[in-house]
Nucleic acid binder design. Structure first.
Lengths: 211, 211
DNA sequence: ACATAATCGGAACCTGAGTTCCGATTCCGG
DNA sequence: CCGGAATCGGAACTCAGGTTCCGATTATGT
């Protein structure tokens, strides 16, 4: 209504680098991030802002000063995790054995999700957020190379395409919490099965990927 | 406070068979069930009671008369689905080729989940409900036999145990909604990979299953 | 057709959780 | 050491969505 009403910058986190952010502010920002990591990892998206604030020993208001929205906080932390994935994918590219590199990446990816419920929820139920975070961290490129390399070496089945990766990671995302409740689950068994399914030569013929 | 306060029968659906339920009541019950199926399939657990009521052309009160709680309704419908799975597993046992029978069961399981968001959410995020529904429908037994048979025939890897099935189904649950949003996703590709991973002989050694 | 009781419908209520607001507090340059 | 500005904290607000309530409606036995 008011002509000067300004939109909230659509969910972005408040700049962390700010030319001159007061020292206590930066300190609190870190505390919020750390608390957020822990709470979101434990309770997933259900984690409550108040819990995060309490754990950070800070008022809710402070949390909101740094992250205008719960989603903003979640996104920020998701971005962190994806950066980690991307880094790992790059490292894996250096592995002399392309298959081992690929497998290591998958293992890392699964284990991260097993320890971070929020991440696994994003992977499994929020394609939007996931796409953004993945793009933002440039995950696609190293993963594509990883796949191409392993296929050229003849160890990865020929019919998987880079676009399958989100799908695979989603499956992995779900598995961790499958049967039992403990954070320690049987995800490594599941991963083992999927990896064997990804080896060359393929037996089951896959339908063509849908855009 | 009042000494005669009576507890709500802990989430059970109201008996459907009732000795003498009024005809319109039974009719409405059906309408609610049908609407519930559709809404839950589309929106998962987020489906709203009012939407269900509206779709059933009925008031919310009526929904609550038949199902004292949203969970009760969800449970009731989950039970239906699990009954279907169990039936399919029994049929699969009759297949002359144990591997084909097993694969068919997995395919059915995945496709049901691809078309029912609520079911896939239960599989992926509510071990409790899932366990109950599975036990209630006796799913475990035919599945165990299916596995044993396929292993004896030498087509299914030796190191999978019946307890892995929930895990596998969870992964399948997640995959459907992986990358894209459309109800039609690439789940069949994912299933193909997992099936190949389940074939004998195993390559990757799986860690022992955790209770 | 009538009485009675079960059933219906949907407005109103309640709770939980994200978000806003503003007086109190803390930082930092002069 | 001071003053102003940025930051903090947490009470209060808002809103969505599950659940309850009760007068109106409708089915069923006689």
């Amino acid at each position: 209504m008011n002509p000067v009403t300004q939109q909230k910058p659509a969910d972005q986190a408040i700049a962390a680098d700010a030319p001159a952010m007061r020292a206590d502010a930066r300190r609190n920002r870190e505390k919020v991030l750390k608390a957020g990591r822990k709470c979101l990892a434990d309770d997933g998206f259900d984690a409550q802002m108040e819990d995060i604030a309490r754990r950070a020993k800070v008022g809710v208001g402070t949390v909101y000063r740094h992250f205008p929205t719960k989603d903003a906080l979640v996104d920020a932390l998701a971005a962190e995790r994806f950066k980690g994935l991307t880094e790992k994918a790059r490292e894996a590219l250096d592995n002399p054995d392309p298959w081992v590199g690929f497998a290591e990446f998958m293992h890392y990816s699964a284990s991260v999700q097993a320890n971070d419920r929020a991440l696994s929820e994003i992977m499994g139920a929020r394609p939007e957020t996931m796409r953004e975070a993945a793009d933002g961290s440039g995950l696609f490129e190293p993963v594509s190379k990883l796949i191409a390399k392993a296929q050229k070496a003849g160890s990865l089945r020929r019919d998987v395409v880079p676009e399958d990766v989100p799908l695979l990671m989603c499956g992995l995302a779900r598995a961790p919490r499958g049967g039992s409740k403990g954070p320690e689950s049987n995800w490594e068994r599941y991963l083992g099965i999927v990896l064997d399914g990804l080896r060359a030569p393929a037996i089951t013929k896959l339908p063509p990927p849908r855009a």
